[in-house]
């Protein structure tokens, strides 16, 4: 589903160069639930961002469904992100000016769908995460757990084949965190979705099918 070949990522400023990822080779198979672990600053999020086409590697190839995508233009990359990938971020990244259902609808805005269809799909996604009663609320009227559910609903509303979750439980207490992981597991099982999740939490990582470990920008066994 996703292949990374010889990926390298260097951050350059006027004075220093920082090697964030070095010679990363990995394969994520279809319907896999993988977690990525490692200490802070080891490059976990950078790796996830490159997989999700949110960032470009300094070197190497990214293949999605066997297609090399690094050299794709803005429009093509946007179309792949829209149709194939759903993101869940640690800090939720909801738009505070929009209510819950409008936030969930965002990925559908960039597809050829009528308002009625978009609403229907957004409400169905909210039902799946148990937030049907909060559709008209604004993000700042919700708890952390509820916000992350909205973010999950937004990630799944377009029925993507891949979900990339960057520390989805990082800002939540353990109970709420487990609820979120349960939702992801349900989705993985019922919709056959490939999930790649960055986490610090060993207990949560153990619930996934495979754990990848990073240290100083390199994959370790």
């Amino acid at each position: 589903m996703i292949s990374l070949k010889e990926i390298e990522k260097i951050y350059r400023t006027d004075k220093i160069e920082t090697l964030a990822l070095k010679e990363i080779n990995l394969e994520i198979r279809k319907n896999e639930f993988v977690s990525i672990m490692g200490p802070s600053g080891c490059g976990k999020s950078t790796l996830l961002n490159i997989m999700g086409l949110l960032d470009k590697p300094s070197k190497g190839e990214v293949l999605i469904d066997s297609r090399e995508v690094v050299k794709f233009g803005d429009r093509k990359l946007a179309a792949i992100r829209n149709s194939k990938i759903g993101f869940i971020f640690q800090s939720f990244h909801l738009i505070n000016d929009l209510n819950v259902v409008d936030n969930v609808e965002i990925p559908l805005l960039y597809r050829r769908l009528s308002y009625k269809n978009r609403r229907k799909l957004a409400l169905a996604a909210l039902e799946k995460v148990g937030l049907s009663a909060r559709t008209r609320h604004f993000p700042n009227q919700l708890s952390g757990g509820q916000r992350q559910r909205v973010a999950i609903a937004r990630a799944i509303v377009g029925k993507p084949e891949i979900i990339l979750a960057d520390e989805p439980t990082g800002n939540l207490d353990s109970n709420m965190g487990q609820d979120i992981i349960d939702i992801l597991h349900d989705f993985h099982k019922n919709e056959n979705t490939t999930i790649v999740m960055v986490t610090h939490d060993e207990q949560i990582a153990k619930q996934t099918e495979r754990i990848l470990r990073l240290f100083d920008g390199c994959m370790v066994n």
């Binding site: 999700g52 949110l54 803005d74 429009r75 946007a78 179309a79 992100r81 829209n82 149709s83 759903g86 993101f87 990244h93 909801l94 738009i95 965002i106 990925p107 805005l109 960039y110 597809r111 937004r154 377009g158």
Partner: peptide, 15 residues
């Protein structure tokens, strides 16, 4: 951040 969110979920620069 809003721009980032919209880009992440499929908005192109032109959009």
């Amino acid at each position: 951040t809003e721009i980032g969110i919209r880009k992440a979920f499929g908005a192109s620069s032109v959009t």
